[in-house]
Design a binder for these strands. Sequence first.
DNA 1: CATGAATGAGCTTTCATTCAT
DNA 2: TATGAATGAAAGCTCATTCAT
Lengths: 192, 192, 192, 192
Amino acid sequence: MAIRQKCIKKRKALLNATLNLVNNNGFHDAPMSKIAKMAEVSPATIYIYFENKQDLINQLYLEVKSEFSTYVFKNYNEKDCIKDSFKQVWMNIADFKLNQIEASNFLSQCDNTPMIDEDSRQAGLKNLQPLINLWERGQQKGVIKLISPYLLYAYTVYPLSFLSNMKQKQTFVLSEKGLEEAFEAAWDSIKL
Amino acid sequence: MAIRQKCIKKRKALLNATLNLVNNNGFHDAPMSKIAKMAEVSPATIYIYFENKQDLINQLYLEVKSEFSTYVFKNYNEKDCIKDSFKQVWMNIADFKLNQIEASNFLSQCDNTPMIDEDSRQAGLKNLQPLINLWERGQQKGVIKLISPYLLYAYTVYPLSFLSNMKQKQTFVLSEKGLEEAFEAAWDSIKL
Amino acid sequence: MAIRQKCIKKRKALLNATLNLVNNNGFHDAPMSKIAKMAEVSPATIYIYFENKQDLINQLYLEVKSEFSTYVFKNYNEKDCIKDSFKQVWMNIADFKLNQIEASNFLSQCDNTPMIDEDSRQAGLKNLQPLINLWERGQQKGVIKLISPYLLYAYTVYPLSFLSNMKQKQTFVLSEKGLEEAFEAAWDSIKL
Amino acid sequence: MAIRQKCIKKRKALLNATLNLVNNNGFHDAPMSKIAKMAEVSPATIYIYFENKQDLINQLYLEVKSEFSTYVFKNYNEKDCIKDSFKQVWMNIADFKLNQIEASNFLSQCDNTPMIDEDSRQAGLKNLQPLINLWERGQQKGVIKLISPYLLYAYTVYPLSFLSNMKQKQTFVLSEKGLEEAFEAAWDSIKL
DNA sequence: CATGAATGAGCTTTCATTCAT
DNA sequence: TATGAATGAAAGCTCATTCAT
């Protein structure tokens, strides 16, 4: 057990180092040697835990994505009121995007560059099904516009990525009030 | 003049090749040698037109960004009706994001990775001033919510990036009707 | 004893694995890790039985060489007739070269590349002394040409290496009749 | 032209360095860095002339093989007397094997290890056709045994590889008289 | 005796950039 | 202006070997 623990720790350290470097320098300037140094292991050690650089990135993507979806549905149980249910989920996402900036930023890079395998990307997609279900229920109840879930996502969740981006660049930081305004904008855009 | 023309052509070919390769392979797999080959020049020739790789990327970013802002304010003149004015601009942006996918995709990469200099990014920011002015006028007239322009942008313009992304990946393509729905969502999110 | 047995088994498994890999991939693509995997032991275990990779190769060479000489003088006892004695030995060699192809192939590699220590090579040389004695007797009796044993070897034994090589590459396989022809060629080349 | 000449010189230097190192250290200890150093170029330069290490080895093999066949049929024109014709060719081969030891040794390594592609090996095979034709003529005239050309080769040409090997290791050096004896052995083995 | 994990050294190869022409 | 050839530096990765258990 002591051994396994140590192993898991090293793996985690490597994933953290990668996240860090890719975020700050970009994928193109995150060489294995730097990753190893930052994780305080030998470069060769990386290849005990990961097949190659691509695999390291892919696995990191999947872990972060899964971390994200855990976040999203924290304390979520379907309530009667669609808006309340939605607000709960939306606030969770906002919490993640605005407070787990490192993770959020990494996901943005992955989604906007060809740096992870299409397979891994596909595997990481299926995380928001409960939200889609919620939207559908809202549509059946006549509370939410009858438009594609892609549009619903684009206008409620995706804007948070921009706000996350701005916060990370210290260009614009959302206040408590701003957060409420943001939610209202999201809700207004899709409510019937 | 013939010579100048030819020069400009080579420069353009290099920028195109770079755009192409960065979009398809990512910045990390767009080496100068491939760029040169695709533009049908010698690698050494690149350094006649650009100081180094970073400069090439920066200049490309600025050109594409400026191309974008030309697009945005095509046929734009301030009208009485805020919504109409806004719709004109919004549709221009949508047109760009959904039809100039290569360019749009490249800008997304630039905005989500540390691949261009902060200086160039700053220089590319000031392109949407007229839109900001429009919003301000709308706010003064009581037509638009009194919220930060960052929020206005996040909920009206930024969602189009997501839709562009989806189109490029052939995951979801917006119909004519969908486009109208998208605009309504955008407008609903910010109108008072 | 049971333990000893097991140990010997592991050693044998390692030698077999090495033979196999060196034959199929070449010395340059027979890493310790692959050898270990093929022998179903840990890489570290190799170093219990062998000092290092060179030692492993050297020991393998000596074992195979000794296996060879056991083969060569199977059923051999000096008879009156030189030709008969020689034929017995020659057929043994042919048997080895054409049926123990793996072993034969490995020895060929060793003899044609600088992959084993000169010491081990020298140690492996002294195996054919009885054959040399036989030749000498033949020469004294006026049955065999008075030429260097190196020449005798080159024209009677060495050609079998070529035929072994061809068989292994499935380029040319000797028939029963061909084997007799081969012996006659060998004998003709050295008989007086 | 001056440029081309220089190019060819570098290519040649690289091939020579490779021959040298592979002969002395073996394929497994002939790293690109050493090859580059010996040829007095940068490691990166190798990749201007060769696709990769395998390609370098393959090309070297083909060049040496072709050099060999040029040697073999030097001053060769079909004469009436089969033995004389054969002797001419045989002596050429002996000359090559015993005096171009580096080249000869390299070919031996290639033929006894899996270090070159099967394709290249096949391409290098067709060099001895005129010799095969000669043997056939000899067989038709009733001068040479009616046995497979593989056997003819094994007993006349292949022994020279052994003698070359011995000479290179300074174990046994053929005298002028020895050479004649060797030829007689070769001829005796195949003549009717 | 046996091992999985770890590693420093070194491998092949690529890259951004320069230089002679 | 334009280039093919050249390269030092560094990339991703592998390997023989060691060590804590």
